[in-house]
Design a protein around this nucleic acid. Structure first.
Lengths: 352, 352
DNA sequence: TATTGTATTGTAACCGATTGCATTAAATTC
DNA sequence: GAATTTAATGCAATCGGTTACAATACAATA
């Protein structure tokens, strides 16, 4: 009976190195290294010989040794609040596609909406020596000190969607203020006068800006957005139900509702319908993100189209441009187009 | 005028190493290394001293040097068909959480449902020297030769959801056959007799198994599942519409519909409703995955609960167990519980 | 023939962390 | 006080590729 159980043995096949190849072919490791990197000084026949032997023996370059020497990783770090939202997974899909095309890998982690987790993630990314970092910050992130290490070493940090202000960091966003304005303006145009806005944590630009746009539209219409008409929540599905309860108990109920997240909006809408409110008759509703659920709910939800895939692609291209030195470190935010999609949940006036 | 533009300079700050720390503190690199790794042999005071200095100087471990030496990357590769589906992003969220807790990173890439892309991804993962590989195969994957390199080097390869048979590879799945049976059986119990099944590519276990279960239920009920009652599609949203058109033109229309994907089912349902079919009156429908949309559609969609988050967590734990040698390489598939969730879209009989 | 040039390959010093095997100092036991 | 532990630290080789700087061989030129 063997001393160790069979399944504890691993890596039976020895990993072969350029030294092995060199010895077998009676050449120097340097020549092998150069040949494998297609260095012009090496004889074509020698290259062919080495390539053949390498393939035969299943040689693979040890990227650690290589990176240790060259100080490049070809890896980009991505920190997002959550992986499992339609929006974020769409962004990531876009990122992965472009990164892959340019020979970069993606190291992805989620902060689960917690600043401390985000800090830990950043540290890991830093130690993993990512060539660049893409971040959408957590709900409760206050400081960006945990990115200082990157910045001081000139490792590009790019924020997307939920961004932080920093002179050295680029960002990719949509015009949230305008989107908020469009949403509110649309509700006003549909005849709503007591419009309520359900938003997220106002420390986050995306929510603060949407609210600003919301207020601007109301103020233009001569309506004051008092504090009672703005509700800050975590925009979860549970929050959606609570909002419905809340509205149900309001003496002067809103006739329009702008909720900064589709999933939350949809849940709220269902809860309201259960309480026999009609949508859009009693209350017109506008969501945000153009999540698949917005087209599935009855009535279909008016929302803001958010170009997630494009945002992912754009973010990667922007950070690669920085890495290649073709773009300055200091740059203006990249603003992508979003658009109001009008569906039935907000149409209070005739269609024609 | 400087020779290079200012923004092309990078990494101005010198990276400090354990040698720098050792020199500054008049210690040996070995002590510094041990201290940073919290080695028990090092004096607590010395550790504190080193930790402090390291923090002060912004030291970061060079993972390449470390990995080069230890031959471990602490990175797991994940190849999925698509990132942007509710199911997959939920799985990934679960994976990330566990991996992160155990100090592992995730290198994630998507095959976009193409075998050739999957092969390329596998190659990258191989060269990145991931410690293990988690795969859910693409729609059209025929062979698993591209994983042979891993297997022959005893790098664990674990399949999840869409799995391939291989004696050396573990897998994490649900009992798709049973789920398919449950779905069909439920429709039968609700009085359906002409039941149609819309499935995906039958080379994939998930679809083949669900179909087998479907057939078993029908055959038990004495109904023959003829080829006309089974439709193989790509389960996209477009497919959902086509299915509705197809049904609309069938002479003998089905009274029950089991679609192996919620998003597709929902789209189909909407298209059918537009054509004035009532759900579940004319046609009862069952989907698969318990996607958020299933609770949003009217009537709410009966579906199969798929434990995505748990699957992600389980898969990581299983592969880590292999890496730690606590589990044999050859093992039975891990089967997670799925469950039929009955909602309105399939209730043709009274509730009581 | 001596010199210079060209093509090709080799030598050896890195890159930075890890770790088996000492070594030294201090504490404990006899 | 001598002998033995115990605690803490150091030495030096190692991981595998890269690359500046030779070195060698042979052809071309003076």
């Amino acid at each position: 009976m063997p001393a160790t159980s069979p399944y504890t043995e691993r890596n039976m096949e020895k990993e072969i190195t350029i030294y092995d190849l060199a010895k077998i072919l009676a050449l120097s490791p340097a020549t092998v290294s150069r040949a494998l990197n297609d260095h012009p000084a090496i004889n074509v026949k020698t290259k062919a010989l080495i390539a053949e032997k390498a393939a035969e023996l299943g040689y693979r370059s040890n990227t650690f040794a290589s990176h240790l020497r060259t100080r490049k990783t070809n890896t980009l770090g991505v920190i997002v609040p959550r992986l499992n939202s339609n929006f974020m997974s769409t962004v990531l899909a876009g990122m992965e596609e472009v990164a892959n095309n340019f020979g970069y890998n993606l190291l992805i982690s989620q902060s689960l909406e917690s600043e401390s987790k985000e800090q830990a993630n950043a540290k890991t990314m830093f130690n993993s020596r990512v060539d660049g970092l893409l971040v959408s910050v957590a709900y409760d992130t206050e400081s960006i000190d945990h990115f200082a290490a990157f910045i001081s070493r000139n490792i590009p940090v790019l924020f997307f969607d939920r961004v932080m202000e920093h002179p050295q960091c680029g960002s990719v966003v949509i015009d949230n203020e305008q989107a908020g304005y469009d949403a509110a303006r649309h509700l006003l145009d549909e005849g709503c006068r007591r419009i309520m806005h359900v938003t997220g944590d106002l420390r986050r630009n995306v929510y603060a800006d949407r609210m600003d746009g919301f207020k601007r539209a109301l103020s233009e219409a001569g309506i004051e957005a008092d504090s009672a008409s703005i509700l800050s929540t975590d925009l979860s599905q549970d929050a959606g139900k609570s909002i419905a309860d809340h509205i149900d108990q309001m003496p002067a109920k809103p006739d329009g509702l702008f909720i900064a997240n589709d999933l939350c909006a949809v849940t709220c809408m269902q809860a309201l319908q259960e309480k026999s409110y009609t949508i859009p008759g009693d209350i017109a509703i506008v969501g945000f993100n153009n999540d698949p659920v917005s087209q599935v709910i009855t009535p279909q939800l008016t929302t803001i189209f958010y170009p997630g895939y494009q945002m992912g692609k754009t973010a990667i291209m922007a950070i690669l441009a920085q890495l290649n030195g073709t773009k300055p470190l200091i740059q203006d935010p990249i603003i992508l187009r979003s658009a109001l999609i009008i569906r039935r949940s907000s149409k209070r006036l005739g269609d024609s």
